[in-house]
Design a protein around this nucleic acid. Structure first.
Lengths: 195, 195, 195, 195
DNA sequence: AATGAATGAGGATTCATTCAT
DNA sequence: GATGAATGAATCCTCATTCAT
């Protein structure tokens, strides 16, 4: 029973517990007590470290986005051509680590809370901007004028597969999403090449 | 003060009030009292007619889907070619009547509640199936083997534009969504024609 | 079991219960549950009618001051000379109805809460102004220049007897307070007459 | 970092912090954590030295009363006549050191807690007795039979000015309180001399 | 048909207090 | 001597739901 330096340990445990609990319940309607219990601590401790329930949830969202961002970076690393890097974005978005039922459920729940919470709204905006800028960076050399619209389309496709996933009772099918999204990209390129 | 035939009037008023209130608050965290007040009745009456809060919300979702279904039917009416009918689906999905901030917010909220509520889950499944079957009906003659995947992709695109809309602070941009989705469809056709 | 028009009944019961409970506990550290129980209702109902704990306590203070104001009016009624009216103010201030342990305890507690709560501060200010204006009205004809200072002194004397009462374990001794305060007033007048 | 003799240092720091904090917040609703933070130590240490929150508060009250007692002693020192010594009591009571907003607020708060806490009650009783005995010592030679009542009146006047001070938003006006109280005493003496 | 009255069951949050180090 | 870690107990407040009228 270490008695010092517990703060980072507890914070991480609570954030992970929050993500799990949100995924488990399928909504942001989780209680601090549920999260705390899952993390193996009292709800009072959760408040001690985070100050409020909203802070816990924001930290959870932050963590999900950070995981995705890290994966995106890793996936693009070493890729040479724009097409390869676009594919890498798709792969990372639907990787087993991110395209999990509980993460998807949390993701969706955060979209809802962005209607109300400034923190949630800001974090999701950051994700949007980052994804958009990543996509544009690869698309511009290939498409010129259409790059913006196509970036929006790819982003919508990714989010669309996420939200539709939320309705499946079976395990998420990342493979299918990857295939479909890449097909969209590849078709696009073929057309550009041809014309 | 007629004493008869109030039931349908009240039910409709409550359902509309529920949709408005959900849109207004941006989440399913609305109270029965808020809905009832908006409908101009007491919360007790809301329970009298619907039995429970969940039933009110389910009825609200049902109504949104019904509106969309009707629009789809209307939009496709009179259209001759498969392409025209596909375009009509897109037009209806992003029409001013359906692609409104409050409807989008409600839509999103229902996706979340589908994780928990059987009713919500079932209703959204119906919408999915219907959209999918509509799309397939037009795509099969054109694409043969790829029809299934493309149908999924178009559906994801539509849902993706909806969910991304939820983050905008400005008014929804249905036009842009229509343009992007139709561009996707048209590109697809061009490719098929070419090859 | 009357089922309509309960609101005023409940509100009054809750306010009285609040005063009793504050007196009983000797401080504003009473819970809504305690007050509600004493009033024979649930704490939820207390919130339903008052919205918040602070509102209940403010209403309680308001009532105490209203009772005192009414007594003051009654006591002065029919009194002819300024001296008689001054005596009446003193009599009312220390009457059995107002100079009760629970009212005194509540009074004191409100003075403390006036440091924090705007409502409490405002209400006590009103009481101060009213007492002062009452006193000045009688003192001006008698004392001219000194009236202001003497009014302050009499007011302080009244509040002083109240606060000191809070320390007694025996029943409040309104008589002694009346005697002492009137003696102060009478001495003053004698001096004025003599000089 | 001396390891010995910290106890008195810490105790004093905590008591002073308690007085400041009570004055700052305007009520006894201060947390041990707030007091400890102001004293620059952990709340656990506060408990280590005082055992409980109530003990801290009692010690704080004890200190306020001790300060006042010391001032009273000093003020009376060297004064020859009873009147001079009475004036000295008044001066000390409303001196800048004692008649400060935070001390007044703490004072008032202690009166409230005397309703509940035996310790607080006992301490305030001691103050009452001491003031009374001081006053009586000077008044007896001058007033004989009325001395008791007049002592009570002066004491009430002092407490009354204190409590009324609690409502002011401006700085305390010790001068005015001194003038009024001395005027009361002097009038009394004049009357005695005359009759 | 309609509602005011009423409540039980939570849920977020606070805080004095304890304990191991 | 000193503190970070941890919690149980309370407290305010909300809300879906029921019921008598």
């Amino acid at each position: 029973m270490p008695k010092i330096g517990m703060e980072p340990v507890r914070r991480l445990a609570l954030v992970n517990a929050a993500i799990s609990e949100i995924g488990h319940r399928g909504s942001l309607d989780v209680t601090v007590t549920q999260i705390a219990k899952r993390a193996g601590v009292s709800s009072a401790l959760a408040h001690h470290y985070f100050g409020s329930k909203e802070n816990i949830l924001t930290a959870a969202m932050w963590r999900i986005l950070a995981m995705l961002a890290a994966d995106l970076r890793d996936a693009q690393h070493g890729k040479k051509t724009p097409i390869e890097r676009l594919h890498a974005i798709v792969d990372a978005s639907f990787s087993d680590r991110n395209f999990r039922p509980d993460v998807i459920a949390a993701w969706l729940a955060f979209y809802v809370s962005a209607q109300t919470s400034n923190d949630a709204h800001r974090l999701l905006k950051v994700y949007h901007r980052r994804l958009r800028s990543n996509l544009l960076h690869e698309l511009r050399p290939l498409l010129a004028a259409d790059a913006e619209r196509v970036a929006e389309t790819i982003a919508a496709l990714i989010d669309g597969f996420y939200i539709r996933q939320a309705l499946r009772t079976e395990a998420p099918d990342g493979k299918a999403a990857v295939v479909a999204t890449k097909a969209f990209i590849d078709d696009l390129m073929k057309r550009e090449t041809i014309s």
